[in-house]
């Protein structure tokens, strides 16, 4: 099964004019934290997973930065990189044609589309990742996004490999009209099949996550996680303010707000993400380990019991 999943392409970066990928530019040696205004040495920020060492602000990650942080070095095999966007409506607005906008975005971002999918390992455990790139047209969900995610889910279902999606998105890709809206239905249907195959989907809501992605596969995952301070909602705050003429409450649509209202399972600091995902994967992996023979007795968790250990079960007895 692994061979099916590991077939794919090695990533070949597009020529790019995004200076973030080029560490040599002097203006980019320092970054100012938008939250605490502290100037941080870029190298230090990278070493700290792009989390502000002073205030803990989680900077947004590009899709490939996220993948690099999440999966084991050298394990990532990209899928469906040759699936590229088209312009079914021949859409054009005063800023130009969608097809030109796509090309410009591809050059600027170094990506062909807003979703990157592929196979990797997390501390040795197999996983499929689907990571959106907010720098590509606000990671809006168009046909390619939906198709790549659906293919990934279908392969996960076939191979029994868990899926982790990382979801930052501005919503639907307006330039693709109703084709874009229908990707909500398509990806949810694929997720339903993943569920029938009893393959888990872990969703990380990343800053910012709005619209069609919030209203489809990302918020019905088996486990829904968010990083601190992440903004998640269906309608954008400005739209809500305009329409309701009400002042929005403090912390509105933050991960903390979602946790309080019961919409997500927990908040995880970026530094704990990989370990947390590994632990989750182990829980689901054990479910399928049947026919182990003898039952293994439980052991007190010394690490978490303040040194006062309860009595362990004796082998052979059910406790």
């Amino acid at each position: 099964m692994r061979s099916i999943l590991q077939r794919g392409d090695k990533f070949q970066p597009l020529p790019t004019d995004d200076d973030r990928l080029d560490q040599q530019i002097p203006g980019d040696l320092w970054k100012k934290c938008p939250k605490c205004s502290e100037l941080i040495y870029t190298r230090e920020l990278e070493n700290n997973l792009r989390v502000c060492p002073k205030c803990g602000n989680h900077f947004r990650l590009r899709a490939r930065e996220r993948i690099e942080q999440l999966v084991d070095p050298g394990s990532f095999v990209e899928w469906d990189a040759e699936v590229r966007p088209a312009d079914p409506l021949e859409f054009s607005d005063p800023s130009g044609a969608y097809s030109d906008k796509l090309q410009a975005t591809q050059r600027k971002s170094g990506e062909y589309e807003a979703l990157i999918t592929g196979f990797g390992t997390v501390d040795g455990r197999s996983i499929v990742v689907a990571v959106s790139d907010f720098d590509f047209l606000g990671a809006s969900m168009g046909s390619v996004f939906g198709e790549k995610l659906t293919r990934a889910m279908e392969r996960c279902a076939e191979a029994g490999t868990p899926l982790m999606s990382v979801n930052a998105s501005g919503g639907a890709r307006m330039h693709e009209g109703l084709f874009s809206l229908m990707q909500m239905a398509k990806t949810v249907a694929a997720f339903a099949r993943l569920g029938e195959a009893r393959v888990p989907h872990i969703s990380l809501l990343a800053d910012p996550c709005y619209g069609g992605v919030t209203a489809s596969y990302a918020t019905i995952a088996d486990v829904i996680i968010a990083e601190p301070g992440t903004l998640v909602g269906f309608a954008g705050p400005r739209v809500i303010e305009q329409i309701t003429k009400q002042k929005l409450p403090d912390g509105f649509q933050t991960a903390e707000f979602l946790l309080e209202h019961g919409m997500i399972d927990f908040i995880v600091e970026r530094g704990d993400l990989k370990r947390t995902v590994a632990e989750l994967l182990d829980h689901y992996a054990r479910v399928h380990q049947v026919d182990r023979g003898e039952s293994i007795p439980w052991q007190p968790n010394l690490a978490r019991s303040n040194g006062v250990a309860p009595k362990a079960a004796k082998p052979g007895k059910k406790s």
Partner: peptide, 10 residues
């Protein structure tokens, strides 16, 4: 719903 979408495959 599976078939809805337009893309190119290079």
């Amino acid at each position: 719903f599976r078939r809805i979408g337009v893309w190119s495959e290079a």
